[in-house]
Design a protein around this nucleic acid. Structure first.
Lengths: 316, 316
DNA sequence: ACAAATTACGTAAGTACTAACGTAAATCCT
DNA sequence: AGGATTTACGTTAGTACTTACGTAATTTGT
């Protein structure tokens, strides 16, 4: 029969929870056997308050690794039990400073031996395992402080996806994806102009047949991004119709799609590569700048109202 | 500013809880970012069910380190989500066997990469700390399985107390304690007979002046146990009036108090040491046997109705 | 200097559990 | 065999939190 241990790090959360629940239950039972009504959860706060003098709710919450709401509620029980009292912070009227009362200090002192026993019992149980549990825990805590588990997994996910993404040329079966991606982008930042609809519905006629190119980013069997090179009548190329599904942004897909277009431009005999965009799209502009585009004055007026930035590719 | 880390093992429960909460929150967020509505808590159960086939509620609860109630409630959500189904155990009509559905298996398979990422991210975070967190956790888990934290602390508490207990001779200022302890014992097991009250209220007259002895067990400034040697008219000693406060039983105090009485008997010129007790008090009888007392027929009738066992000291 | 943003805290509602109790089926004990 | 005990599970009420939202005081940006 498999148990949680067999799932290694995957079930770590469940196992830590179960372990801490067991500890709290046992420590509560120990306090109760001494006739202490106060829950063991209060003791961590009391120890912090005794060590640090007076503390605000948020401050205490951060130390305990809980929300301020939890501490706010906890403080009520402790106030009622008379082990802490409160005072307004004179320099910040919002803050309620908590501090331990003589009764609270006495409670801690009176049960110092019990707390010593708990500490020693755990230290012993850990010692016989021949592993440095506390140091390992401190290390893990610190690692997750530096970068959360969420961010760590996202980084891995992105790395794995970026590796799995292929940049491919236009194929007729992806015609609908071409329109879908561009409309999604237009509706997010601007609105779909009349000319857009024409081009997006007939990419072969408007882009490929005049000598342009369409590229796709494909993840498994899903098309998640696109870019185009549109050939002008004077032979110049326009980098355009660049769009990446919201879900997969931040993977560096824009750079990949643009780089592929630049390569294509270089292989051609086209005299110039330019693009039009909008000042609002700062991340995109920064990307273009880093790829070797420089700002310039437009030579002819744009097909699109939204365009107010004009850039020319000058190479690296 | 001190934080929970500075309290070492004492605040371990709080720290583990906070760490597991963080993990659950992050993993939940990760699942949610994938559009999975099912809480991450369900996944541990699903993994166990997939690995082990069908399991009963209690069985699953034990593996998860939770109560059967928790699993019973959790199973409802999982049933409603369609990731598990249930069937009566044909060999035990009480048991409800849970098993994973194809939909559940598919959910796990479809998110295998995410689970791999979570596992790998944690493994990495642990690896850079240069500590073997998982091995240390397994070790601590196992230690606490072998003996609970509660029992460990109780053992320490008792050892510390036993060490701190002194066996002392009678002093007039402890006269009230002598009566209190004996009355407590009598009321618990029998009732206070008329002759008891006489003796207990006048220990000097009835016990010490005829050549007897009274011993006390003192913990700090508290008298927590007593025993007496009562000198008979024929010179024999009776081991009697043995009582230990309920709170401090199980510390081996009875043995200490009896041993002190035996020593005193040996130093005297008394021809015999005997005692009277009751068959109901098996732990006490076992103690007397281990100290060298043997069962015998009483030579004279007892002062007390409750006495139905008579023992004589024969040495080791 | 003053609106906007942030911070500190409280409250209400929801979640995930436990403790305590109850019921039904199985097992144990002569 | 049949009463006593144990085991498996469900339900209810309570606990310890969180999330979400609101208010008031403080800080920031220009």
């Amino acid at each position: 029969m498999k148990n949680l241990n067999d799932f290694n790090e995957l079930a770590l959360g469940s196992r830590l929870k179960s372990l801490s629940d067991r500890m709290f239950a046992d420590v509560d039972a120990l306090y109760k056997s001494r006739g202490i009504e106060l829950s063991s959860r209060c003791f961590a706060s009391l120890l912090l308050l005794r060590a640090n003098g007076s503390m605000g709710i948020t401050e205490l919450a951060r130390q305990l690794g809980q929300t301020h709401s939890a501490v706010s509620q906890l403080s009520k029980t402790m106030l009622k039990a008379g082990v802490i009292d409160q005072a307004k912070d004179p320099s910040d009227e919002r803050r309620r400073l908590l501090q331990i009362t003589p009764a609270g200090t006495q409670l801690l002192e009176h049960n110092k031996d019990l707390m010593d026993d708990i500490e020693a019992a755990l230290r012993d149980a850990i010692a016989v395992t021949q592993h440095e549990f506390m140091a390992a825990l401190n290390g893990l805590d610190q690692q997750l402080d530096e970068m959360s588990l969420f961010d760590r997994v996202k980084t891995r996910e992105n790395a794995r996806r970026e590796k799995a993404v292929e940049i491919i040329d236009f194929e007729p079966r992806y015609r609908d994806d071409f329109k879908r991606l561009n409309v999604e982008w237009l509706e997010k930042y601007f609105y779909v102009e009349a000319f857009d609809n024409q081009v997006l519905s007939n990419p072969e006629e408007y882009i490929l047949e005049p000598g342009g190119h369409i590229f796709f980013a494909r993840l498994d069997d899903e098309i998640i991004g696109t870019s185009s090179l549109i050939r002008q009548e004077d032979g110049r190329f326009e980098l355009s119709k660049m769009s990446i599904t919201e879900k997969h942004q931040g993977l560096g897909l824009g750079r990949k799609l643009a780089q592929r277009a630049i390569e294509q431009f270089k292989r051609s005999d086209s005299p110039q590569l330019f693009l039009e965009t909008n000042t609002r799209l700062t991340p995109a502009i920064r990307l273009y700048e880093s790829l070797g585009f420089v700002h310039a004055k437009p030579e002819v007026e744009s097909h699109y109202q939204r365009a107010d930035v004009y850039m020319i590719y000058e190479g690296d």
